[in-house]
Design a protein around this nucleic acid. Sequence first.
DNA 1: ACAAATTTAGACACTCTTGTCCAAATCGTC
DNA 2: GACGATTTGGACAAGAGTGTCTAAATTTGT
Lengths: 210, 210
Amino acid sequence: MSIVDAAAGVFCREGFAGANIDLIAAEAGVSRQTVYNHHRDKEKLFIAVVRDLTERCNAGIFATIATFPDQPGDLEADLIAFAVRLNQNCICNRDGKFLRKLIQTEGERYPELFAEWREQGPGRTWPAIAARFARLAYGGHLTIDDPDVAARQFLGLVNAELQTTFMLGGTPSEDEVVQSATSGVRTFLRAFGKRPSPTSVKRHTALANA
Amino acid sequence: MSIVDAAAGVFCREGFAGANIDLIAAEAGVSRQTVYNHHRDKEKLFIAVVRDLTERCNAGIFATIATFPDQPGDLEADLIAFAVRLNQNCICNRDGKFLRKLIQTEGERYPELFAEWREQGPGRTWPAIAARFARLAYGGHLTIDDPDVAARQFLGLVNAELQTTFMLGGTPSEDEVVQSATSGVRTFLRAFGKRPSPTSVKRHTALANA
DNA sequence: ACAAATTTAGACACTCTTGTCCAAATCGTC
DNA sequence: GACGATTTGGACAAGAGTGTCTAAATTTGT
């Protein structure tokens, strides 16, 4: 395991102040001196860790966004599968857990560093997801006013059941992820889905609602 | 300011390991020795802080749940107002912010302590909110399958726009809270609200949906 | 005003951690 | 096998923090 990987784990478990360079070195399987050779001091090492996690997580998220259903066959099933992928590959995996925890615990101590994350992360991924929803709406598969809002609500819904687990730093089971995604997508489609018109493909109807 | 209050602030800012008893004493306006007189050691003090926050937050949440709209005049406006109250009085206030941060940062270090919180907090408040939604559904104002799921989705929706701010430990502005609650409730009602039947009061229709 | 309880300031021992230094060992490459 | 670069382990100084102790000061109740 690389030094940065080991450091990520220790920083997450112990926090910045509690993290011990000896322990990081031991978990990385190198001597303490090597840690200091590669990264001048504890703070530089921490910054390297966050940058590394941000990059890897972003890559994963964009790769997953690329699998967003464009020409849905069964929209419900496709969205559920997408939500599950997003959770399993980007949010519940090691990198996602670590990055989330570091942001929560040390975000206030390094405003510039995490402002960077905010721009590169949510600032780029949310619009990307919103664009995919806009495309579905344009194609007549959804009825959406504001794609940005819809995208954030989609994420809020499919993670609604996992909040407590996330808070405590736990990893939800595959079952829980599927459960939450399923009920989340169902609600999402009740709000934004087209009303049952199984035949028409190109009609771009807006359903008045009150 | 009491010792426990000062300790809450310092533990939140610095984390458990980084918190300094001298600093806590100074912010509380007492001598270090007094801190040790009241709370045997750092860990006992930390536990006292979490217990205190949990109690106060729970009290606030239940007080706010008591204002849940039972006989809604304008359901949308009533739910938005409720969501805003919940956020302002229980989640965005000092206690809420502190408790959330302590759970996120130290949750894994004190499993029993935070298991207690989980039982007393989400374990009791979520069902309470679900019960209020069930009542609205029973009264014919909403169409809900599973009130527990609906309650969690309601919370996920009205907070959907505030996630990033929460993550970084910030406090959303009143405007942001209202914005998020408004679009969240609108979506919630699109999914669970009764379809436009402005006259009938007691008809308990279930709308098939695909 | 007096006695008991509490608080205070400071000194103190102890532990832990960071970051540096250096000589010996190990590794990679030719 | 030899040479340069890297790694290693250990010692080390400096600083910071915890928790204890004590004698003096202050508060509290009566």
